[in-house]
Design a protein around this nucleic acid. Structure first.
Lengths: 167, 167
DNA sequence: CCGAGATACTTGACGGAACAAGTGACTGCT
DNA sequence: AGCAGTCACTTGTTCCGTCAAGTATCTCGG
């Protein structure tokens, strides 16, 4: 239905690609959230926070590091940790090495929550992403996502995943 | 489901892939939103709504169709159209063919807004997604995203873009 | 060691999105 | 025709995340 002076846009193939990417970017997080909410009563972000802590030495990490690892703002993390503290899964304590910093610590109950929740979550990740794709596609996706991430993710928050667990 | 000390998780390669996908799924929409907010003062969702209308016959579509095309709920669309109406870019009118339905119409001002906004948005999509990848990777991404979308997107809302039912 | 500026959070105010309930309109069965 | 059930929205409430401002601590130049 193009009038001649339609807004500048992408060619058909580019647009198809972009729309598919968009739909994926919207619905995939939504589906992941839904499974966690339904089966474990936590949001994906909350789960990520606990999962990151569970993989950290002493199950402990600085707030700002956790925020970066979970791809969220410090503000958001602060509110989230409030909720997780109320549920008894995380506690805060001051960082002895830096008076400004706060350490988030996963409690034993929190650890159990992660252990109980992880299998269902992992199964969902497999079901939605890993299984429907060929091994080749998974490799391609890895490279593509890594490349886009480099372009898109704000400087500074390019996290290396947790150091070995002394848990 | 075995009993393990560590929560069941993915192997290193799978986890890398998943974390990269997650980071992309978080930061890409964020970056797209940021450009639109900065340069045009609209959210990505608002832009999508207007862009979809701009590509529709008579610049008109049913609310529920627009919602599906923009990957949003009807509730969200309703609130968003409230705002777009206040800004003079969209109007509502009842569907003559179905008294339950509401048609969203892009106004002339709204059309101009889309025309003015599209080039910057398209440039950002290219900069963040299309340009950093090889042509081959773009094709791979298309297939991968389409596949995942099939698995992840709720039944029913699998939209074809152009013409509404003048069928 | 003192003060200016940066850093690491926390918190108040605000806006947007989800859930659920409500309204009016269509459909299908009898 | 008439009622039950569904559908297409809209709206009240509530929660969550952001922005901006506040607090406490660290760093660094002089």
């Amino acid at each position: 239905m193009g009038t001649v002076d339609e807004p500048r846009w992408l060619n058909a193939e580019e647009q198809d690609t972009w729309l598919a990417v968009l739909a994926m970017a919207v619905w995939l997080p939504d589906a992941i959230d839904a499974q966690l909410q339904r089966d474990a009563g936590v949001s994906h972000f909350e789960y990520q926070v606990m999962a990151m802590l569970s993989m950290s030495p002493e199950r402990t990490r600085r707030m700002s590091e956790v925020a970066a690892l979970a791809n969220g703002s410090l503000t958001r993390l602060s509110r989230t940790v409030d909720r997780l503290e109320k549920r008894g899964w995380v506690t805060r304590r001051p960082d002895p090495d830096d008076g400004r910093a706060t350490l988030a610590v996963l409690t034993d109950t929190g650890w159990e929550k992660v252990v109980a929740t992880a299998p269902g979550h992992v199964a969902e990740v497999r079901r939605l992403v890993l299984d429907p794709l060929t091994r080749t596609q998974v490799r391609q996706l890895h490279e593509i996502a890594t490349r886009i991430r480099q372009v898109v993710q704000p400087e500074g928050s390019f996290p290396t995943l947790p150091a070995p667990g002394t848990a």
